[in-house]
């Protein structure tokens, strides 16, 4: 491969666990740095993607309007978009709120719960509004690859990225496929 591949990452409605797991590739990060360069990512603190990124890794599902904007920017900027982890792939644990109507969730959290003082639904325009349901990212943008796991193990990231960097079609062997 000519230059280094540009990789960006982001976390939507996730727990950052996938990012932590990514860092578990430990010393292989040095080898990775030989072939890849990090663009927008909570790991680099770069806030927006540069023009064209090769690979975008997305952790977390969509629970609010801001998640949707971020995801769309990612899709726009990344040649290859990857859904990373259970939350990005099926909504994950945040989606367990899906069978409770949003109205009840908000009432329970901000109005009716014991110990709530000055009950009111937050209405600051800076705060992103919640979607009725938490959605996995493939329901809103086209997704090219999926890395399952909660979180996917460091080996999954390593295998996937090295496959791609070497120009091979990424594939995960049986041992690396996990939904938990």
């Amino acid at each position: 491969m000519a230059g280094k591949i540009k990789v960006a990452t982001t976390s939507l409605a996730g727990c950052f666990g996938c990012h932590m797991s990514f860092l578990d590739i430990d010393e292989r990060i040095l080898a990775l740095a030989e072939i890849a360069e990090f663009d927008r990512s909570p790991l680099t603190d770069i806030k927006h993607c540069s023009d064209q990124v090769d690979i975008g890794l997305v952790e977390g599902g969509l629970c609010n309007a801001e998640n949707v904007h971020t995801l769309r920017e990612f899709r726009e900027s990344c040649k290859i978009l990857v859904a990373v982890g259970a939350c990005a792939i099926n909504g994950g644990l945040p989606a367990m709120r899906n069978h409770i109507p949003l109205q009840e969730c908000l009432e329970e959290s901000y109005l009716d719960a014991v110990g709530v003082e000055n009950p009111q639904i937050p209405n600051d325009v800076e705060l992103p509004l919640l979607l009725n349901k938490v959605h996995p990212i493939h329901e809103v943008v086209k997704v090219d690859y999926f890395l399952p796991g909660c979180p996917p193990s460091a080996d999954v990231f390593w295998k996937f990225l090295t496959d791609l960097a070497s120009g091979a079609e990424p594939s995960l062997p049986y041992e690396l496929v996990h939904y938990d």
């Binding site: 792939i89 996995p136 493939h138 329901e139 049986y174 996990h178």
Partner: peptide, 14 residues
């Protein structure tokens, strides 16, 4: 796992 299913592909019914 056996069928190498990496995602559920369809929109979820929840």
């Amino acid at each position: 796992y056996y069928l190498n299913m990496l995602d559920a592909h369809f929109p979820f019914f929840y």
